[in-house]
Amino acid sequence: MNIIVCVKQVLDPDIPPAKFKVNSEAKQVVPPEGIPPVINPYDAQAVELALRLKERNGGKITVLTAGGDGAEKVVKHAISMGADDGFVLNDAAFEGSDSFGAAYILTKAIQKIGEYDLVLCGRQAADWDEGLVGSIIAENLSSSLVILAEDAELVEEGLKVKRVTLDGYQVFVVPTPAVVTVSNEVGQARLPSGLGIISAARRQIPVWKAADIDVDPAQVGAAAARRKLLKLFIPARERKCELVEGETTAEAAAKLAEKLREARII
């Protein structure tokens, strides 16, 4: 089965809060110096699910990313995990695209690749946390969609997908080609192998421009964005913490209980 995985490069979501900074004038996040961006963790997990499906059913895994300089790094990461092939979608015209623009660009690239049974996306990109692009791609391709997948397997009627819900899960069987967005319940993404890293490092990742995937420039970029970012700021979340101390931890704990009682919290 042929699988296309959409992967995005994002600011490392594991950076400590102290290192997260924004430039409110420019309405941009200031990437912390020294900490390079990473593959969106959900996308790495989408690649993981793709690899498991490939191990069971054979086929080919192609990864796509729309992004600027350095974006090939996430494609290489996917390849070092075991993906077969990948492309970077980069064109000045793409800059400032919103989720709909990005989904349109990706859709065009998917259509250029043509041969596929399944498109995998992450449940959301850990930068803007939208959770839109996968679903929009499904609409663009008018293919079936299951979001928040924690597992998937190939069956006669198509693809059997286990979808996470707040209180449990749902099981769908959908016709292929399908679009599925992957949630973290899929489990840890595998680490790249030694040979995987080396072969990825040796690879040249082709870049597709607007013309290569016949994207209409009028439909992408900041100008085509359906909404504007007006403000970006770091909310004041800090509270004043009263540290409860004692000779021993146990003693401190007892004091804590008393304090909570005094404050009528318990």
Partner: peptide, 8 residues
């Protein structure tokens, strides 16, 4: 060396 499960 042996790294990432492979012999290099």
């Amino acid at each position: 060396i042996r790294a990432g499960g492979d012999e290099l």
